[in-house]
Every structure is written in C-alpha cells, then in structure tokens.
Write a protein that binds this DNA or RNA. Structure first.
Lengths: 122, 122
DNA sequence: ACTATATTTCCAATATTATGGAAATGTCAA
DNA sequence: TTGACATTTCCATAATATTGGAAATATAGT
C-alpha cells in the first residue's frame, strides 16, 4: 500500500495581510502565473529554468526576473543541480494564500461563499 | 432550525487565466485589499464610499481610483442610493478566484496541498 | 587553461500603476 | 435656483514593474 502523505507536506504559516499582498502580486502577472502553473504540473522534481524558458517561450533575462519575483514571495523555491537550477512550486504557500482569501472572503459570513455548512476542511 | 442558504448565492462562473490575473491584481494592493475586507465585514448592504474613506483614511480621489479597479475586476459592485454610492463585495467572484487557485495549486496533485483526500468541497 | 552550456546580473528603455489637489458632476432639500 | 454634500473625473507627478540585449558568473567536460 502506497501511503501518500501522513501529514502536511510543509509547515503552513498563516499569512499576514502585507504578505498576502506580496503573494497575490507575485501571481498577478500572466507570465508568472504561467510559470507557477507549469511548476505545479512539473511536480516535486520541479523544472529547470531552461525547460521553463523553452516551454513558455520567454527570454532568459525576463524569465529570471519573474522567477526571482516568485521566489521573493516564497511561492516557489529553487535548488541547483550541477549546471541546472530547478524551480518548484511551494504548495504550502499557495495553500496559505487560499486560506487567507477564504478567511477574508468568508470571515463572519461563510454561508454566502460556501453554502450553509462552510467548507469541509478546517 | 435555521436553514441559511439552500443553494449558491450567485452564479459562479469559472475564471480564465487572464481573468484570474486581473482579479489577483485587483487584490494585490494594500489599500484595495483593505477595502475588500472592509466590504466583506460590511455584508450585503455594503458600505458607502464616504464610510470607506473615513474608515480607511484614504483621500476621496484615491479611494475612487481603487474602487474602480476593484469594480473593473468585478470583485465588488456598486449601487447608488440617493446621494450615496454603496459598494459591496462580490463573494461569488472571490469564490471563483479561490477555486481557480485551488485548481492551479492542486490540479493533478491534490494530496500535496490538502492531505491525502483533497478538500471536502467539490 | 579552454570551451561549451545554463543561468543570472546589469542596465536602460518603456509601460503601467498609484497618489491626491482642484474642478466637475450628481443628488437632494429648502 | 441656490446651497450643501457625496463622489467622481481630470490631470500632473511620482513610484513601480516589465522587457530583453549584452555582459558577467557558475559549473562541468576535455
């Protein structure tokens, strides 16, 4: 039997309003959102800068700029593997963002957003 | 027993990537996020521009600019009531954003973001 | 050391966004 | 129709973000 994940993958720190703005801004750009989506699909291994550049047809310096923005917001992380630098999505951070928005959206009035019972998940 | 909402409050249209960027951008600014949060708390009646301006201490023209941005992204809506203009949060739109992010984050690998079973809600 | 490849930093041009005073508009009451 | 109030539009300024070529840095193979 293939136990997938006994508990949360990474620690989920709640987002402050300022931080939430930063994460939102990091995703509020077409190329960056495309990068993030690409990385979600790439999974845990992530994808190298070159692979991303080719897939999304973005010039190196432009890609590098956006990768840095995403990393600054901690919505992605990177590791070097010999000559390649692999980037990977930070799911915990995305989850924290979703949780922040859920609180923002539903704080006090969950019924309006998610029906009479709120969300299943705490 | 107090049945709160039999079904969804508003129709929830799924977000396109471009639209998602627009909604993200509309919230990716401190003042605008504060406005939105204020409106969530204000509830269905919403809050007038003046009320918001006073509460958040934002000059009229600046507020007006941000309200327009939020409205352009359809994350809030407005109605005039005699001399006042009331703004109110569009919960359905926020939900659509959250759903978009959830798909983006978890599409293919829900276990990574939300534990081995995904979210309770569809 | 030299070469090739991957990626980044530097930098300057361009584009977009945010800010708020002054003036315009819209609404109502007298 | 004048006056008071709420809000917006106009507009100039300032701040921030995006873009990509050229040059720099990092790593590995020969």
């Amino acid at each position: 039997m293939l136990r997938v994940k006994p508990k949360r993958a990474e620690t989920t720190a709640a987002l402050e309003s300022k931080e939430a703005v930063a994460v939102l801004a990091s995703l509020a750009q077409e190329t960056r959102l495309a990068i993030f989506r690409h990385l979600v699909i790439a999974g845990d291994e992530g994808a190298s800068a070159g692979t991303i550049a080719t897939a999304l047809e973005v010039p190196g310096p432009t890609l590098s700029f956006h990768l840095k923005e995403l990393e600054r917001a901690a919505i992605i992380s990177s590791r070097r593997e010999s000559r390649l630098i692999y980037y990977k999505a930070n799911y915990a951070r995305m989850r924290a963002l979703i949780d922040f928005l859920t609180e923002d959206c539903c704080g006090g009035r969950p019924e309006v957003c998610f029906g009479s019972k709120g969300r299943g998940r705490k």
